[in-house]
């Protein structure tokens, strides 16, 4: 095993981790504010990938425009789901919301299969994204650098938003206590809607990244990355944005190194490894790496 191989594995871990982190942020934000594990989150990732495909293939949009479209589509779908499925059952037991999100997920997946068929699709990526760039002894594709940079920019922007803007502060207040937040004049439903919109937009961008990197997308592509991003969010500490980011990178790196460094006969156990890690982490650190033991809210 040589240094360059190891380095390229680390790079791959960073890329996969960036995508997991973006999806995990949404899980964490939504859980933080409504105590709901949104199973349909992985499907928004899929929708992001298809929105990318559509805006490249149909309207030949340049890449920054594609990015903007994907962000908007993701946010809109997130808002729609929240409005149609979750808001009507606000206040119901947690399990109800969880099953509702599974139902939403099944509806989206079948709708996707019906409309675009289950056949995987490839899409053409602009040539400049595939250009190889020498970086620290490695030849890295432009798209790989773009993924990591874009992810980091979005995450910094989000952290700044939540930390310093009025809406961000209000979202943190809402996540902590609905009633007191309402007494401040905060519209709870609006804050929940914003959390859904932001989280979904980020998941959609992760879908764009996944599609451009691997060049192939399908209606069910979001199931496993979605679940794994949830694992990442739990590892980091559900409810914490920095935790989700950390968990995303830890899981992405661990998964790539598990496959890359162990003998090939183990690589088939990739998924078992991820979920085994989840169970292990939950047992050792029930609140994840950065999560604090929060109050139990029904």
């Amino acid at each position: 095993m040589n240094g360059a191989y190891l380095l390229s594995q680390v790079a791959n871990g960073l890329i996969l981790g960036s995508m997991y982190a973006l999806i995990a942020i949404g899980f964490s934000m939504i859980y933080g504010i409504v105590r709901l594990i949104n199973f349909a989150h992985g499907d928004i990732f899929t929708i992001g990938a298809f929105a990318t495909l559509a805006s490249i293939a149909v309207i030949q949009a340049p890449f920054p425009v594609v990015l903007a479209i994907v962000l908007v589509v993701g946010a809109a779908v997130g808002l729609l789901i929240e409005r149609a499925a979750f808001r009507p059952m606000r206040g119901a037991p947690q399990v109800t919301g969880f099953i509702a999100s599974l139902a939403v997920s099944i509806i989206i997946e079948n709708l996707a299969v019906l409309t675009v068929s289950a056949q995987p699709r490839t899409f053409a990526v602009p040539a400049y994204l595939n250009r190889l760039i020498p970086l620290g002894g490695l030849n890295v594709r432009m798209i790989d650098i773009a993924i990591v940079l874009l992810a980091i920019i979005l995450m910094i922007a989000l952290v700044l938003f939540v930390r310093f803007t009025k809406i961000g502060v209000a979202m943190r207040a809402t996540a902590e206590n609905y009633d007191v937040a309402r007494l401040m004049g905060i519209n709870i439903n609006r804050m929940i809607g914003i959390a859904f919109a932001i989280g979904s937009a980020l998941a959609a961008v992760a879908g764009l990244m996944w599609g451009t990197k691997y060049g192939q997308i399908s209606p069910l592509m979001g199931v496993l990355p979605g679940l794994k991003a949830f694992v990442a969010a739990v590892i980091g500490g559900v409810g914490s944005i920095t935790g989700a980011v950390l968990g995303g990178y830890v899981l992405g790196m661990a998964e790539v190194l598990f496959v890359g460094l162990l003998p090939p006969e183990y690589s088939g156990y990739r998924n078992a490894f991820v979920f085994g890690a989840l169970i292990l982490v939950l047992l050792v650190m029930p609140n994840g790496i950065l999560g604090r033991s929060t109050e139990q809210r029904a």
Binding site: I37, V95, F98, L227, N271, L278, I279
Partner: peptide
């Protein structure tokens, strides 16, 4: 023994993970 110490959502996802773990073993 380990998994049932978890609650609510966490248990749900851990048991969901069990499906994928068993699947991995069945494949491999």
């Amino acid at each position: 023994f380990p998994v049932l110490r978890l609650r609510g959502h966490y248990l749900a996802v851990a048991t969901l993970g069990l499906i994928f773990i068993v699947q991995s073993f069945a494949v491999n």
